Amino acid sequence: MANRGGYDAVVDVDAEGDLGHTDLNDDLEFHNSNFDSNPNGRKVQPDTTFLTPSGRANGGSSSSSSKRFLWSISFYQQFFDVDTSQILHRCRSALYPRALFLDVMEGNPDLYGPFWIATTVVVILFMTGTISQYLQTADRGYYAYDFKLLSGAAGLIYGYTLFIPLALWAVLKWFGSEGANVLELWALYGYGNLIWIPVALVSWSPLSILNYAFTAAGLVLSAGFLMRNLYPIITAIDAKRPTSSVIIVGVVLLHAGLAIAIKILFFAHGSPAAKVPAGDDSS
Rank of each mutant, 00 (worst) to 15 (best):
L185E: 01
F50W: 15
A154R: 11
F35H: 14
Y134E: 06
T84R: 14
W196F: 15
W204I: 00
L185S: 03
V251E: 01
I131M: 09
A200N: 05
Q133N: 15
S85P: 04
Y76K: 03
L219W: 13
F75I: 00
N108Y: 13
T49I: 08
L111D: 05
W71H: 11
A213S: 10
R92T: 12
L111M: 13
L254R: 06
H255M: 02
E106M: 12
L265A: 11
L100E: 13
L166E: 07
F163L: 12
H21K: 14
F79L: 07
G55W: 06
D83Y: 12
A259M: 03
A239H: 05
F35K: 13
D36M: 07
A138K: 13
P206M: 03
R241P: 00
P198F: 13
V121K: 09
I131N: 02
A256S: 08
P165E: 05
G59P: 08
D81Y: 09
T161H: 05
G5S: 04
Y160N: 11
G60T: 09
E106C: 13
G107R: 12
A57W: 14
Q86A: 11
I248Q: 05
F163E: 01
G152V: 03
T235K: 04
L162P: 02
A278C: 10
S208V: 08
S177C: 10
N211P: 06
Q78A: 11
L254K: 04
S244P: 02
Y143L: 10
Y142E: 09
P242S: 00
A187M: 08
T243P: 00
W71D: 11
V123Q: 06
D23C: 09
A239G: 08
L183E: 00
V11L: 14
K275P: 00
N211T: 09
L24M: 11
P242F: 03
I164W: 03
L156F: 10
I131H: 04
L70K: 13
N32S: 09
F50Y: 15
S62F: 09
K148V: 10
N32H: 13
A153K: 11
G60Q: 05
G17K: 04
Y189K: 04
L51R: 04
G190H: 04
L183K: 02
G5A: 05
C91P: 00
Y189T: 05
P53Y: 11
G152H: 06
G59Q: 13
Y142D: 07
P198Q: 11
Y158N: 08
S203H: 03
N40F: 15
G129D: 02
L149E: 05
D83H: 12
L210Q: 08
V246E: 01
V13N: 02
L258A: 03
F214C: 08
T161Q: 07
G176V: 07
G176R: 09
I247F: 06
I73A: 13
I237H: 02
E29W: 03
T137F: 15
E178N: 15
A278D: 14
Q136L: 15
G176W: 06
D18Y: 03
E178F: 07
G159A: 09
G190M: 06
S85N: 14
D27W: 00
S282P: 06
V252K: 01
W196G: 03
S245Y: 09
A118I: 10
Y145I: 14
A9V: 07
Y96K: 11
R90C: 01
R140W: 13
N38L: 12
I247K: 05
Q86N: 08
G141N: 07
L221N: 02
Y142G: 03
L166R: 08
H89V: 01
S282G: 14
